[in-house]
Simulated assay, not measured.
Amino acid sequence: MKRMTLMVAVMGTLGLAGCATTTDPHEGGLLGGIQGMGSGAYDQRVQEREDRLEQLRQAQQELQTEREDLEARKTRQRREVALERERLAALDRDVTGLSRQVESLSDRHGEEDQRVQALQTRLDDLRGRMNTQQSALDALEGSGMGDAETDLRRRQLEEQRNALREEFDLLMELSLDLAR
């Protein structure tokens, strides 16, 4: 009889273990956990989670590297914009000096001299374009443009500044000719 009771208990346990539909101990209870450990499903789930964790760590490292690259580019672009601002400020100082010379020429040659008036008109135009250049630099600095767009716009602004410098040099030559 004792043997029979033991057999019924073992058969009942095996029957219940066979009814477990999941190897996850959270869902299948004790018998599901035992079955999962026995079949290796538990170890497989642990390995899958460890693999996923490693993938997440790699993704995090890639994002960190990308963030550092973006910060370095941002710093470089800020430096380049600051350098362009310095160049534009130097040109502005030169234009201010030229403006004083034109005023002196105007006093000396008279305000009616067409050459002095033409020089003054060109100088005013140059100042207007320099103000536009300064506004463009301000907009570039505050923009959220991507790297390629920012680099292209900065190069365009450098070319415009170079053209302004050439115009200034021509105006300087004209003022020197008038001063003679």
Rank of each mutant, 00 (worst) to 15 (best):
L137D: 03
L123Q: 09
R161Q: 08
S135H: 05
E48A: 13
S104L: 06
M37N: 11
D94M: 04
S104R: 11
E103W: 02
L140I: 05
Q120N: 11
A179N: 08
C19M: 14
K74W: 09
R115E: 12
Q114V: 11
L14S: 08
E111S: 14
L98M: 01
T132C: 00
V8Y: 07
Q77Y: 02
V102T: 09
R180C: 02
E71D: 14
L126R: 02
R165I: 06
R154D: 02
L63G: 03
Q58L: 14
Y42N: 14
A139T: 07
R122Y: 13
Q64F: 01
R100T: 11
T23K: 04
L70Y: 12
G33I: 06
L16C: 09
E111N: 10
Q35G: 06
Q35K: 15
V95E: 02
R85V: 03
T23P: 01
Q134W: 04
Q35C: 09
Q114W: 05
N131T: 10
R129C: 00
L140D: 01
R76A: 15
R76T: 11
L171Q: 08
L98Y: 01
I34D: 05
G15M: 12
M130P: 02
E71H: 08
S135T: 07
R73H: 15
G142R: 14
M1Q: 13
T65L: 13
A82H: 03
R45P: 01
R93S: 04
G18N: 12
I34V: 15
E27A: 11
T5W: 07
I34M: 15
R129M: 02
L105G: 01
A20Y: 00
L123F: 06
